[in-house]
Design a protein around this nucleic acid. Structure first.
Lengths: 201, 201
DNA sequence: GATATAATATTAACACTGTAAAGTTAGATT
DNA sequence: AATCTAACTTTACAGTGTTAATATTATATC
C-alpha cells in the first residue's frame, strides 16, 4: 500500500520543482523582479499552488537560502581533511568561501543580505545550517589557536574577524564589478593573508 | 527680476522635500515596502508629481544614496587634521566609517548593497561623491605607506583590503543583530586593529 | 487688466503584484 | 457507489510603478 508514500514523494518533488524554478529566477533576474506568477508559469502550475508549499514569497526565499547554505557547507567540508597545517587549512577555507560567493553571486547576496531584510530570525540559530557553517569556521580557527599559531585571543572574536574580511571582500566584488579592483584573486588572497598575519601578530 | 530664481529655489525645495520624505520612509520601512504613493501622501502631493523631479523610483533611491555618501564624506573629513600619526588616523577613520554605518544602518545598506542592484553604474565613477570617499581612504593609506609604516604594497590593494574589512564587519553587524557577536565596539576595533597589523607585518 | 504661454500638478488608466477565499477535480477509503 | 480528502485552479481584492492626457496655476506679453 505504497500510495501514501508515492503521494508524499510526489509532493516533495513538486516542492523541489518550485524551489529549483524559484532559485533560477531569483538568481537570474533578482528577487524583487520575480513574481509568484512567473514562478508558477515556469513550473506550469497556477500561482496559488505555490502557497500550498510555502507560506509566502519570503518563506520561499528562505528555503532557497537554506539550500544555498547547505551547498556552501558541503563545499567547505570537502576541504576539511586535505590539509594538515591548520593555518593553511584556514586560508584555503577562506578562499573557498569567497570563491563560492563569486561563483553564485546572486545566491550569496540573497542569503547574506537580502534574506535578513525579510526574515528577521537570522537563520543562524541553534541547529540551523547557518550555525553549522559558522561552526566549521570555529573549528578551523580553534585548531590554529590551540596550536598557538595565532596571538592569544578569543576564538569567537577571531572567527568573527575572519568572517568580516571574507564577507566584505565577497560583497564588494559582487556589488561593484566595475570598480578598478586589484586583480580579483590577488585581492582575495591579500585580504585573507593580511587578516591571518594580523591574527598572528 | 528674481522670479526665475525664486521659482528655481521653490523647485529645489520640493525636490528636497521629496528626498527627505523618501529617505525617512525607505530607512524606516525598507525600500521595497515603500511605494511612490506613500511618499506622495507624506508630502501631500499626487504620486505622479514625484516623476517631475525624479525619473523613477530607482533614480529617487539613487539621489538618497548620493546624499548618504556626501554625509559619510563630511563625517570622515572632519577627522582629517586631528591626527598627526597616519596609522592612528587611519584607525580612527575606519572606526568612524563603521560607526557611520551602524548609526544609519538602513542608509548604509541602501547605498552599498541595495542601490548597486538597481543602478548598474556603481556610483564610484570619476568625479562622483563615491569616488571622493574612496579617495579619502587612498590618502589615509598613502600617508601610512609613504612613512613606511606598512609593509611595501600597492596603495590601491591596501585600501581595498581595509575597505573589505570595515565593509564586512559593518554589514554583518547590521544584518545579523541577534548573532552572539563579541561586544560590538570591541569587535570593530579588533577587526581594524587586526587588519592594520596584518598590513604592517 | 485681459490674454497667451509656460510651468506645475492632477486624474485616469494600464498591466502587474502578493495573496485570501471559494470552487473544482481526481483519487482513496469505506 | 457514495463519501471523503488532498491537490489544484479560479476569482477577486487592494496595492504597485509608471505613462498619457488633462487640468490648474503662475508668469509674461500685449
Amino acid at each position: 500500500m505504497g500510495t501514501k508514500e508515492r503521494r508524499a514523494r510526489e509532493k516533495e518533488q513538486l516542492r523541489q520543482q518550485i524551489l529549483v524554478a524559484a532559485r533560477e529566477l531569483f538568481v537570474n533576474e533578482g528577487y524583487e523582479n520575480i513574481s509568484m506568477r512567473k514562478i508558477a508559469n515556469k513550473i506550469e502550475y497556477s500561482p496559488t499552488t505555490i502557497y500550498l508549499y510555502f507560506r509566502d514569497k519570503a518563506d520561499l526565499l528562505d528555503s532557497v537560502c537554506q539550500e544555498t547554505l547547505l551547498n556552501l557547507l558541503n563545499t567547505l567540508e570537502q576541504l576539511k581533511r586535505d590539509e594538515s597545517d591548520p593555518v593553511e587549512a584556514l586560508r584555503k577555507s577562506g578562499r573557498t568561501y569567497v570563491e563560492f560567493g563569486l561563483k553564485y553571486p546572486q545566491d550569496y547576496k540573497l542569503t547574506f543580505v537580502i534574506r535578513p531584510q525579510f526574515q528577521k530570525g537570522l537563520g543562524l540559530e541553534e541547529g540551523s545550517v547557518g550555525e553549522k557553517v559558522f561552526n566549521y569556521l570555529r573549528e578551523m580557527v580553534s585548531a590554529c589557536v590551540q596550536q598557538k599559531r595565532f596571538r592569544q585571543m578569543d576564538v569567537e572574536t577571531t572567527g568573527q574577524v575572519l568572517w568580516s574580511a571574507v564577507h566584505g571582500v565577497t560583497l564588494l566584488l559582487i556589488d561593484f564589478p566595475d570598480f578598478p579592483w586589484t586583480e580579483k584573486y590577488e585581492l582575495i588572497d591579500t585580504v585573507i593573508h593580511t587578516t591571518i598575519e594580523g591574527l598572528k601578530a
